[in-house]
Each structure stands twice: as structure tokens, then as C-alpha cells.
Design a protein around this nucleic acid. Sequence first.
RNA 1: GCGGGUAUGGUGGAAUUGGCAGACACGCCGGUCUUAGAAGCCGGUGCCGAGAGGCGUGAAGGUUCAAGUCCUUUUACCCGCACCA
Length: 802
Amino acid sequence: MYDKNIDKKWQKVWEDSKCFSAVDDFSKEKFYALIEFPYPSGAGLHVGHIRPYTGMDVIARMKRLQGYNVLYPIGFDAFGLPTENYAMKTGIHPRKVTDDNIKNFTNQLKSVGFSFDWDRVIDTTKDDYVKWTQWIFLQLFKKGLAYKDKTYVNYCPKCRVVLANEESQGGVCDRCDSQIVQMEKEVWMLKITDYADKLLEELNNLDFPDRVKTEQINWIGKSTGAQVKFKIKDTDEILEIYTTRPDTIYGVTYMAIAPEHELLDKLKDKIKNFDKIQEYRKEAMKKSEFERTQIVKEKTGVKVEGIEVINPITNKLIPLLVTDYVMVNYGTGAIMAVPAHDDRDYEFAKKFNLDIIPVVKPVNGELPEDKAYTSDEGIAINSDFLNGLNVKEAKEKMTQYMEENKIGVRKSQYHMKDWAFARQRYWGEPLPIVKCEKCGLVPIPEEELPLTLPKIENFIPGEDGKSPLVNVDEWVNTKCPKCSGHAVRETDTMPQWAGSSWYFLRYADPFNDKELASMDKLKYWLPVDQYNGGMEHVTRHLIYSRFWHRFLYDIGVVPTKEPYKKRTTHGLILGPDGNKMSKSKGNVVNPDEIVKEYGADTLRTYVMFIGDFSLSAAWSDNGVKGAKKFLDRVARIKDFTTNEYIENKELESNLHSMIKKVTSDYTDMKFNTAIACMMSYVNLLYKEEKVSVNYVKPLLILLNPVAPHVTEQLWEDLGLEGHIFESKWPQFDETKTVADMVEIPVQVNGVLRYKINVSKDLEQQEVEKIALAEPKLENYTRGKNIVKVINIKSKIINIVVK
RNA sequence: GCGGGUAUGGUGGAAUUGGCAGACACGCCGGUCUUAGAAGCCGGUGCCGAGAGGCGUGAAGGUUCAAGUCCUUUUACCCGCACCA
């Protein structure tokens, strides 16, 4: 039996021996295994944490036994709203809440037996960590990558904070699901768009799953096209537009401009229906971004009377319309509309009775009657010197022509926006900047870092997007570091994502007070060899941290362009009802209870066996019992294990193929099939009266990463030397992985009819002879001729008859 | 709308350079042990059929000696993005 009470005993042995602490011995081959560090919420460890942590734990433990110097660190991403909200509710200071939660998390993590290096624990809210988060911010500021800007920001009225684009996907708050609103506000931004191309390019050199790459590529959303100048008749003004289809310029029948566009104000005097335009603009701006981007919405707009735009290629006059289907914050906020080849323009043109001129026809077939032809498989028509060219050639030729004639320039656009980097809350890193009346925005000198939070009682944020820090006069009022005059501090704090954007660097050198981490240590430990995390972070944390890391590389602080060599992802664990676990649904499984009732190894084995690691899977209490049963079965092997050597050919070949399979399956994170393979092997052991300890020992080492407690115990019970954590990973002999006799299935016309047993070394021709000599064959060939025999070595024989 | 993913027994899931579909486990059935039960151990279990045999990987076609796997068409569900010009 696997007695859960042994868990504590082994956890103490590991802790006392420090066998999982990484050493900075640069002569050894390293392996840096990383999981996304938890947010220490009051709810405690979730069963969703167990799966990725165990998965990486298996790999970390295997790598150690394979002789690697493994760094498998843990820390806490502890700034953030839930803690602050809890503090507001209870009156307990966020510092205390955080410390208590971390203590609780630590105990829980230890009770599951993860092989983390507990000597390198990071808490992002501690002064010695905040110091370097702020330091990085200052470097960004110095390079012009942190700037303050008055723009429309996503604002969550419930949380009372500004949100980054990444946090307001779908028009709702990431955290509380409230509708977000657009608020004009001056906030700190990080210029992540400057790094869009670098982030995109390096993706090619990374070992990330395709769907992760695809999601990041889509999020960055690069498009290439041209920015083109259209003159406005009888004025000096120019309407600049961005298009990905310069080849369709002969098909432009109107121009469309966003309601917010400033050109409308400039042309005020020439616009005959300016009142009507103003009315429309007011209406449009009332709508939230979310409303404006609803698909079902009818297109609206107003013709700008008195204004005509000149097509720079044809010199034809075209009308200008203002419409909210054109976004002010993408491209130039204005477009050339080609209804024949754009769905939105088509819809709009139909509604407002505007011309539709086709300028591209399909290679084969006719132009569609009732919709736009948007495919770029086509040939230019009605387009003067472009006629006959395919879309790609036409695009290139037109762009060149535009550049030569100074009508337009080649241009790339990105879907990704700059990162709104400020939250109007208390529990975050203060922005190390002061506002001086004379000197403007002034960074705090680096030697004064960290800038710590003042102790306050009231954490409730202000109504209109103001931080609770605004009210702390003695903290806010300060001296300008430049001129010593009066200055006020920034009262916004950094978003939750700040600390997690560089924590993997600090693990390499967690106590360094001179630099964020020493170059020597970073050179040894970086990049992270494998980083496992959830899909939900692909367009947030994973992009942000790649951005910060690349910036730090560019200023010479870190040795690699990219932080993570390989990224893997885990699927969600769903509730027993197949739904996402949530308190409201009452389907949450508490890992503590599983550990208490069945032992840590049962929990670990179960979550590893539950299914494909990267796919979601529903929790099953019966499955947990099955895992326990398997571990009990393993523990009972000792009842029939003997020290005398008993040769067993069958066990021998199975042992070697198991070592091979388990090793590669662990590496590929196919834990479920690795465990299935070990289960089969255990089933084989049970068929024997007595088994030699040689056939048990390797099994214990292979199973150890998944079930470390029970295997160490059994190792001790069998009187084996030392501990498993001091052992070597077993090696397999390829020649021994195949049994002496192999079974070959024989098909007739593709249908399995019988099987033959042959020696593994038998010539293929001989195998075929045996297959054809089988008396049963007659039943299927009667009255027919054997036309052909397909003979695939040690796989299958197919006899084709007619 | 665009991009990505998934679909296999009563259940979770195995199986990819195309080569035995259903490994392993849960559940269920039977045996053994027991005064009895539980646990353990052993065996059975895709569907139809008494059997021979036939059918079977969301659906419909196709390629092939051979298709869960490749091709064409299509359905359902999940995730991401979404008037991005």
C-alpha cells in the first residue's frame, strides 16, 4: 500500500538535503525549467496549478537524474487587485494579506512535493524586487519607450482602473467582466509597438507551439501596404490614407474618414453641412468602442458637402464621407473606399448609393453579382497600366509608381497598440517619476530606488480614475531631483504585468543588490530551456515579457535576444461536470483535500494520467481512485521481489522498451502514455511468482518523477542503496527493446485474418513463406488467385487475391 | 467574418513517414478469497450475430494492396481575434 503518511517524511528528507537546490556551478550542463509563478490569492492553490507544476516537476526531476544542473524555481506574483480588494473589505493591510497568502501557498506547494528550489523564492512586492522593476522602467523612460500620453483608454468603472488593450479583449474587463468604457485620460504608455517587428521576427527562431506563434502573429497583426496622399480640391490640405490594396486605386469611388479625425475641424469653413457633421460626430463618440465594433451593426455615415478629393492616379474627383466604421486609431484614420473589392465598403456603397467599379477580376469565372470580390487571386482590369497583372504584381507596380511620383510610400501597420502602463490603485509598484513645474517629468535617481509605497489606511480609488495615493500629501509632495523645486509624485502604479515581465531573470541571481542579475549568472542560466504556461497568457504575459527581455538585451543587460527557448502549454482541468471550474458553479476541486485523503502522489499521478497534457480534461473522482490503486499496486511489488537473479526474457525486452518510451514521452510531455506504459509493465510483473529486483529498480526510477514519495519509500523498503534522487536515470539498449519472437498480422485484401509468430531476425521472404503456408489462408483464396503480396518488415503482410 | 483547435466504445483516452482501431484506466460482468462484505488477486467487456461472419473512428464522397491518419465536400462544439482598410 501507498501510505499517504510517508509524504511528510520524504519532503523533509528533500528539504534537509537541499537536493533540489540549483548550484551556480558553471562547469555543469544546465537545464532551466520554468512554470508561470502563481498569484497568491486568498483562495489558495487551485487544482489548475497542479497540472503544469507537476508536468514541469516530472521533467525537472528526470533531468536531474540525467545529470543536469536543474533550476526549477518558484515565486509569487503578488501585486494586484484581488489582494487590494480583500484589504478594502477587511481592513487588513495588503502587505499582511500577501504575506499570509504566500505562507499558505508555500505550505500547499510543499505538501504536493514539487522539487522547487526553495532557496530562490521571489516575491514581486518585496522592496529588493520592486527596486529592479522600477529600474527597468527608468531605462525604458530614458530610451523614450515610456511616455505619457493623453488618449482614449479602456477604463473599467467597476475596478476603477485603466486597462491595457490586452486586458480588455472583447470589450469587457479581464478581471470582473464589466463593460469597459472609453475614457480620455493622460496615462503612461510603453512603446511596445517599436518592438513589433523584433517580436515577430524572433518567433521564427523559437520552439513554440504553432498555435502560440499564430496567436502572437495575429495579435501583433502586421499588414503591409501603402500610405497614400489625396489632395483636397481648392485647399492646401491633404487627406492621407492607409491601404493594403494600392492596386485597386482605380476602383476608389469615395473616401471615408473617422468621426474623430481632426481634418474635419480644419476644413470646417469649407464644409457646407458642418452642423450635420458635428451632430454625427457627437453620436458616434457616445458609443463605446464595443458598440462601434459590433458586427451586426448597420453602417452609418454622412456625406461631407462642399469637399471633393482628388484621386492622385486618375485625377478624378471623389466624394468624402464621415463614418464610424473607420477607426481613428488605426492607420491614418481615413481610407480610400473600393466597394467592388472590400466587404465593408460594398455594404456602405449599397446603402448610400455610391458607385461600384470593379478593377480586379477572378482568374477563372465571373465577378460575383451581389458582393465584393475580396480575394487577391485575380487580374487587374479597368486600371490603365496595371491591366493584366495579377494582384501581387499590380500592388508592387502601383506602390513603386506612387513612391517615384511622391504620391505615397510603402508602409506597415500593426494591430497591436502601445501598452497602457498605469493603474489607479495602491497595491502596485509606484512609478518612479515626479512632475516638476519647471523641469517637467523627471525620473527619480537610480540610487534612490526603490520608491516604496506609503503606509495608508484608505485604499479606495477615486471616482474619475484617480489613484488612492492622490490623497497622501506627504508622499505626493516632494522635491524635484533636478532643480530641488517643488514637485509631485506620479500617483498611478504599475500594472500587475510589470513584475512578471522579468522575474525569470531574477531567479538566476535572486539576492543581487547591485544589478537585476549578474551577467555571468545570466549567461549560464539563460535562456529558459522550457517554459510551460497557459494559452491565456500568450497575448499578455508572454508578449510583455518577450518585449522587456528584448529591450534589456538591446541595452546590454541580458545576454540573449529571447528569454524562452521552448514554450509548452497545458490544457485546463475542468470540473467533474465538464464545465470550467468556478465557485459559482460549485464544481471546484480542492487539491488539499485530495492530498489529505489519497496522498500527494495520487494527485500527481492522476493529473498526469488524465489525458493529453495540452488539452483540457474533466476531473473524475473515479480516476483519482484508479491512480491510487495503481500506486498501491506498485507498492505491493515488494511482496514478490527477490534479491536473487532470475532471468526473464520477456521482462527484459519490456523493461528496455519501457525505458525508451517513458524517457521520450516525459520529454514530449506525453505523461499519460508514459504512465500507461508503466502500468502495463507492472501488470507483467504481477504475472510472475517472484521477480528479481533488477526488474523493479529501473521502474522505480522511471516512476519517481511522477510519484516521488511512494517510489522513494519502496526503494528504502527494498533495501536499495541511497535514495532515488541520488541515482542515475536508466539507459536502454536498443537491441533489447524488441522481443525475440514477434507477431505479424496477416491480412487478405486488407482484412485481418490471422497472425503468425516468427523470430525477429527471420528474413522477410521466409516470413512470407510462413504466412502463405498457413492452412486458414485457403478459406479466403478459394476460387481466386493470389495477385500480389505486400510485405512490410515487422509490420504487416497483406495478401491480395482476385 | 477571419485564424486556430476538437470529434474514436457506457466513460477518460491510446494509435501519424498510411500498416493489427480501441493500448492504459474508469465503469460494468464473472471467478477466487471470505461467515458475509470491503479490499486484493485472476478473467471477460466496441456494435450486430447462436456461429461463420459482418459492421465500426461526427457525416458524405475519393485516392490506396491498406485510411482514425492523405484529398474533396460538409456538420457540431470549443478557443482566440474581430468594421485592422
